[in-house]
Design a protein around this nucleic acid. Structure first.
Lengths: 130, 130
DNA sequence: TAACAAAGTGTTATAATATAACATTTATTA
DNA sequence: TAATAAATGTTATATTATAACACTTTGTTA
């Protein structure tokens, strides 16, 4: 029986915090939030983050060094991620657009490189900030 | 007369190093390389990097915290950047594909956000490493 | 051209992000 | 149940980036 991925204690704690958050969280802000739960060191956070990324449960927003929960079913374990980022309020929204994703995934580099994965970050002003 | 952008001393030093490099450079590796030229502090590097990015002379590879010279004329002061990154040898190549760039630039987010800029990073194995 | 503003520089200090290394514990599986 | 793999806890440290302040150079304009 293919059961849902079971998370370890720290992984679950970190994922819970990220899922509850309204926006992207930074590693150290996660750390400060979980010290009451007995997690004391950055390593514990980064290890959980690494695994959660591997599993596709969260994504890293590279331009912000921050982490968001995956809200999409189309990113197939993070092979094709796209985000819209508001430069004013820092809001991040995962873009789940099959057409866009397929178009980019099928892009072939002239120099003979075969891509396994991409990450796309859009910047602008969100509805509220505009 | 619209003359080419004139760079300050530190900006020129930093740009020279980045342009001569075969791959992306990290800020501190630039720093170590220019200490003979009288630049001693990270701030001096980061200030130059910021301006060079603003001018579109270089780009930051967000997933690597590293910097490459702009080799493209299509990115229009960095409004539309795309890179291919080898996960093995760390090689980075700027992708200058008008069709891809136009397609992505014209993408409209359903949630009413108007994008000013995007950055796309592809990952895979380059010809040599494959 | 003096005087003001803007951009750039040099410097010290420190903040923020991330990994190394090692000992131990828990879970999985042969 | 012994062996192996995954996760944990911990201390230390590496790496990346910014704050703040004094000063200099360059550009603008009155």
């Amino acid at each position: 029986m293919s059961q849902a991925q079971i998370l370890s204690k720290n992984q679950q704690i970190v994922l819970d915090i990220i899922e509850k958050a309204k926006g992207p969280l930074k590693a150290y802000s996660i750390l400060f939030n979980v010290q009451k739960k007995g997690i004391n060191a950055p390593q514990q956070i980064y290890r959980a983050l690494d695994k959660l990324i591997e599993m596709g449960k969260i994504h890293k927003i590279e331009s912000k060094n921050a982490f968001v929960a995956c809200r999409s079913s189309n990113c197939e374990i993070s092979k094709a991620t796209a985000f819209s980022i508001c430069e004013s309020c820092e809001m991040v929204d995962e873009i789940s657009d099959v057409k866009l994703s397929k178009y980019i995934s099928s892009f072939n580099h002239k120099k003979g490189m075969k891509f396994k994965r991409f990450n796309l970050e859009f910047f602008g002003l969100c509805k509220k900030c505009k």
